[in-house]
Nucleic acid binder design. Structure first.
Lengths: 234, 234, 234, 234
DNA sequence: CATGAATGAGTCTTCATTCAT
DNA sequence: TATGAATGAAGACTCATTCAT
């Protein structure tokens, strides 16, 4: 909520599913710190309403896209009156922004444990991709919402991918330091890996499910490990 | 143009740059079956106007996105009256659709020669990526337009990526038959490569230009060749 | 209102004059099933606004016709904002449809008491026509609105005349059973009488007023009673 | 064509079907006299084109109504280019006006011989109605076109009905003078008869054909002759 | 005479946002 | 807090008419 406008209800304040989890609690808390301003609900009833609006917004934006979603779609699905929306958000863009960050945090937090548990750098990427594919299948809206951010709120969009790439680059750096991998140009490689993952998620998470996450991750990991020329592919 | 609605002016009919290329001439020609369609201009003056509208639409959609572009933006830039737009297109969506396919064809045709000239499968991917990055820098609109197609015309969007992946998979198949590469699961690998390329294009073509296309392509190609574990990376 | 599209505000919901009448109260009440429909106003303020829009629409459609009446004409006369119109109706056609049915019901309800009070079948027709002429003079819009329905909403148009003819035929049937009249072919006679009445209304109600309703009704009644050949005409 | 604007092509100049007949030649000629002005075609080719446009306009206006008919509908059906329309007419209203008068004249000319051949006043009305019903069945457009004139060109509309009523009144007057009929108030009776005829035409000519013209005319004529009270009905 | 591209005023309709209750 | 009626700017699209070729 460090976004352009302040004073909006925060996702954290609504007790997001993700905020309830363990790993991301810190991150969500970070958001929540300045968020305790204007429209943060003070009563339990208010928190429940905010949550309902947020969930409805995620569902509607995911299903119809930002421009084809009206405030009434959201409030009707949430079961509240139209005007109630503006008790918690100052504009349509604001919910959207909140949602993008929320989703962004959710993926991160979903994938993080799998990566942390991996024995080495290569296994980390494999586990991360498999976990990501699983998440995508359960939350297909994420693609539409984050992609549309490019048009609705470019800042969120770029931040999402830059942060993700930075995280990957950091992992690769550590792996290299540990001697697991050789990474000549971490930024290029990080964006390449992110691109792979995103498109494999699009193809085998959103568009079709004709491979198990593990299969896809194994193939991609072999590519990442030895390439198409050397030896052990497949 | 063989899309859902018929009767619209075709990009080919306007004498697109891409229509002048080689590879897609056949396909475009098929669409262009002269005079058969509804809104195809019958006079030279008409063809010139159609071209002006198409170019203006590409520029405007690229700059402001589909939803923030008004028909008047397009016609004003094209230097024609509002109503003239509807002499050639039935709706705002229709130009957009035409544009997506046009751009899709343009990339393909821009990259194809570089790939064809490559000595082997690996070099083909490297040359293709370098060429793609060059194209992207010259046509940054392509990202916004194709990405937004996900919301405006999902069919075009999916078709674009499926076609691109198919082309990559076909290349990989040939390379494997020739013994250049080992490709265990062509579809997975094709989507992975496409994702890499797209995101490298986003990072080093659209968002920044702090690497030469060749540098980026070289690094990505090394990854593709031997991976991050084996030997020659870097 | 049980028409093609549902969800529109009903005339009855607005507390029409006609809704206050007796005969159609049942029918209108059926439509008005309270709160069930979409755009039915839930507050008193809303009901007042709906009524204002309806009255304004009747006046404007009557004066300028459907096609030359803009939504702004209606809302300006009603003293509400443009958008308010769409709080109660989904389209221009929808108010028009509502109005046709309303007018249709209004004539019926205006004429019914006069007919009911008549001593016999012949007197009923005479009283009915006189009453109708009086109504027409006070509501000249009815002609334009119902006639234009032929083009805007043929169903309403046909329904109006079929219903009217059926009512006349039913009256004639009863009169015949009572021995008041001889009616060889009730449907033909009913349409003939309706035509007479409508055109006399056009001529002596809308176009000119150079006869009293009673005079006109008397002459027409004499024609109806004994024809032009037999005896007592005049 | 003595209408508001002059200079338009005349129906007569196009060699209407009705103008080709015998009875109305004089009347049409009347129209043609001042019509020989501006847009009257001078060549045979021009006359053919004018005719095509007129026929197409009648068909389109009859089928879709004035407001839903575009100039392009007319020119496409006529097989000429859009601009050609304006070679013969100055506006959409102008063709419409021409058509209303043409149709008006056509009915008159179709019915006149039947009336003229009748032995007495009563038989004249009967023959006239039967003939009228036959005409209506063959030219259902006439209802839509003349009715819509109320909105598009009120003058034509009123003129049509006033002229028709006058003609009927004149007939009645003569019949009375001859002693055939008793007509106390010719204008009222004329409008009553016209209304009967028009509505019987609507019901048994346009909406349905479940009676022969002769049947309907016979019933109506009996009503006209002796009414519903006296003797011979049926 | 015929053609069809160009014009732009005019309209309906949508929808984010405000605000009195 | 919740409600839902009211607002009006904004935008897509239509179509009668003009005119250069």
């Amino acid at each position: 909520m460090a976004g352009r406008r302040s004073g909006a209800a925060t996702v954290a304040a609504a007790g997001t599913a993700s905020a309830a989890g363990g790993a991301q609690a810190g991150a969500a808390g970070t958001d929540a710190a300045p968020g305790v301003t204007d429209k943060t609900p003070r009563t339990a009833r208010g928190r429940k309403t905010l949550r309902a609006i947020l969930d409805a917004a995620a569902a509607e934006f995911g299903a119809r896209g930002f421009h084809d979603t009206g405030i009434t779609h959201i409030t009707q699905r949430a079961g509240v009156a139209l005007g109630t929306f503006y008790t918690y958000f100052n504009s349509k863009e604001e919910v959207f922004r909140a949602l993008v960050r929320d989703m962004s945090a959710q993926v991160r937090d979903h994938v993080a444990p799998a990566i942390a548990a991996a024995p080495d750098g290569l296994a980390a990427e494999r586990a991360g991709l498999a976990s990501f594919l699983g998440f995508v299948r359960a939350h297909k809206e994420i693609y539409r919402i984050i992609d549309e951010a490019e048009f609705v709120d470019p800042d969120s969009y770029r931040a999402h991918y830059r942060n993700t790439a930075d995280r990957i680059a950091a992992r690769l750096g550590e792996a290299e330091r540990r001697g697991d991998l050789r990474v000549p140009d971490a930024e290029v490689v990080a964006w390449a890996i992110m691109g792979m993952n995103v498109f494999l998620g699009l193809r085998f998470g959103v568009l079709g499910a004709d491979r198990t996450p593990e299969d896809v991750a194994a193939t991609a990991n072999a590519l990442l490990a030895h390439g198409l020329v050397g030896g052990q592919m497949g």
